Amino acid sequence: MNRAPTSRQAKAQRTGLRAEALAALVLVLKGYRIVARRYAAAGGEIDLIARRGDTVAFVEVKARAQLEDAHAAISQQKAARMARCVRHWLARNPWAAGLTLRCDAVFLAPRRLPRHVPAVLSLAID
């Protein structure tokens, strides 16, 4: 049975969508092309998939009150779910197999510039 989201859930979803849109803008301004948004599979989700040159970045977006809290919000469990999702995406996008693959993050906090961190996690997809 599907339930309507609570007002708290709806607010969190709107905040997440705004954070992802801002993160996508940051990446585009840095020369990336957004390949996919909110790619969900294999029990995980990748917020953004972006490409620049021969690099494909699987990007986790975290918005918190403090940038340091955003960085700490990426757990090993999240990394494992993300890796499963990356493997799924690669199976459906074989053109990317020969490219450099990396797991990046964009951290956001109020009144602070967004912080893009390349290779924030090791991407164990073997």
Rank of each mutant, 00 (worst) to 15 (best):
A96P: 07
L121A: 03
L67C: 08
K11G: 00
R37K: 14
T100H: 15
Q13Y: 09
G98S: 04
G31R: 05
R18C: 02
T55S: 11
V35L: 04
G44L: 05
L67H: 03
R33L: 00
V106F: 12
P5K: 06
A63N: 13
Q66W: 04
L101V: 01
A41R: 09
I34R: 09
D104K: 08
R112W: 05
A72H: 03
Q77P: 02
N2S: 11
G98L: 10
A109C: 07
A19D: 02
W95D: 15
N93P: 10
N2R: 14
V117N: 01
R87W: 08
A65K: 15
V35H: 04
T100A: 07
R115Y: 01
W89Q: 11
N93K: 14
R37L: 08
E68D: 15
Q9G: 00
E68H: 15
A79R: 06
V106I: 14
G16D: 01
A21F: 08
D47C: 06
A109W: 06
R38F: 07
R112D: 10
D126N: 05
L101C: 04
K30S: 12
L121D: 01
R84T: 06
E20D: 09
P114I: 07
L22P: 03
V59A: 02
R3N: 07
A41D: 15
R8N: 02
L17Y: 09
M1N: 00
K78C: 08
S7R: 03
R52Q: 06
R81W: 06
A97Q: 14
A19R: 01
A70R: 02
S7D: 02
A41L: 13
L113C: 11
Y39F: 15
M82F: 02
L108F: 01
A109P: 03
C103Y: 04
A105P: 05
A105T: 09
A50G: 11
R3S: 09
V26L: 02
D47S: 10
C103P: 01
K62P: 06
R18D: 13
E20P: 00
A10Q: 13
C85Y: 01
E60S: 12
I49Y: 00
A65S: 13
E60C: 05
A80T: 13
G43I: 06
R92P: 00
G16P: 05
R8F: 06
S122K: 07
A50K: 02
A119S: 14
Q77S: 13
A42T: 15
T6K: 04
T6D: 10
V106Q: 08
L29K: 12
A24M: 05
A4M: 08
R92K: 14
A42K: 13
A72E: 08
D47P: 05
V26Q: 03
V86T: 05
A23G: 12
V106D: 03
C85F: 05
V61W: 05
T6W: 03
L90P: 04
Q77L: 12
K62M: 10
A73P: 04
L25E: 06
I34D: 10
A79N: 09
N2V: 09
P110I: 12
L17D: 11
D69V: 03
L67V: 13
A19P: 11
V61A: 15
D104C: 00
A21N: 13
D47H: 07
R38A: 07
